[in-house]
Amino acid sequence: MEQIKNNIIDYLKNNSFMEREMTLNDSDSLTQSGIIDSIGLLELIDYICETYSIEIPEDMLTPENFDSLQGITNLITRLAK
């Protein structure tokens, strides 16, 4: 799970969503902290689907699953089994 979190953080930093020196806690809101907007979220979802070879069901496209590192990591872990 730690590797998934690191991959997501690297993606966010490499694609200019957040500063290189910025730290992000597992439960920090990506939207409320201004890291990601709706377009960025769509790009992140594409990245996750491609990187982990998963399809995300429409009913799982919720704020709980995509607004924090913990939510994203839990979602990927559930779907990648």
Rank of each mutant, 00 (worst) to 15 (best):
D10W: 03
N65D: 07
L42H: 08
I45E: 01
N6H: 14
E19N: 10
Q32M: 11
P57R: 05
N7H: 04
E21V: 03
N74T: 06
D67T: 10
P63T: 14
L42C: 13
I56A: 05
E55R: 11
E55D: 12
P63Y: 15
D46W: 08
N65R: 06
I76A: 04
I72Q: 09
G34K: 03
M60T: 02
P57I: 07
I76Y: 15
L79V: 02
T77S: 13
L24C: 11
N14C: 03
I4T: 09
Y11M: 08
Q32K: 15
L12K: 01
T77K: 14
Q3V: 00
I8C: 06
K13M: 07
T62V: 13
L42R: 05
L44H: 10
D10R: 10
P57K: 04
D28W: 02
I76G: 04
M60G: 02
M18I: 15
M22Y: 05
L75Y: 00
T73N: 09
N7S: 10
S16G: 00
D59S: 07
I76M: 07
I48H: 07
S38N: 12
L61A: 03
I35F: 15
E58L: 10
L42V: 14
M60D: 11
F17L: 13
M22D: 12
F66H: 08
L69P: 03
Y47E: 03
D37L: 13
E21W: 00
S29E: 05
T23N: 14
G71K: 06
G71I: 04
I4R: 09
L12C: 01
E19G: 02
Y52L: 05
N15W: 09
I39A: 11
S29Q: 10
L30K: 07
M18W: 09
D37K: 14
L42A: 14
I39K: 11
N15L: 02
S68M: 13
E2F: 04
I48Y: 06
S68V: 12
N14W: 10
S29W: 08
T77N: 15
S53F: 08
N74P: 09
M22F: 04
T23G: 08
D59L: 00
N74C: 01
I4L: 12
L69W: 04
L44A: 11
T51Y: 15
M22W: 01
S16W: 00
Q3A: 03
Q70G: 06
L41N: 12
D26A: 09
I8G: 04
E58V: 10
E55W: 04
D46N: 12
E2S: 13
N7V: 01
I54A: 11
I76R: 01
S16Q: 05
E58K: 07
G71L: 06
N65H: 10
E43I: 06
I54L: 14
S68P: 13
D26P: 09
I8N: 08
L12E: 03
R20K: 15
S16M: 00
N14T: 00
E58T: 09
L24K: 05
Q3K: 12
I8H: 07
M1F: 09
R78S: 07
T77Y: 15
N15S: 00
F17I: 05
I45W: 03
L61W: 08
T23W: 05
E43K: 15
N74L: 04
L41F: 15
T23K: 15
P57G: 07
N25I: 01
N15P: 07
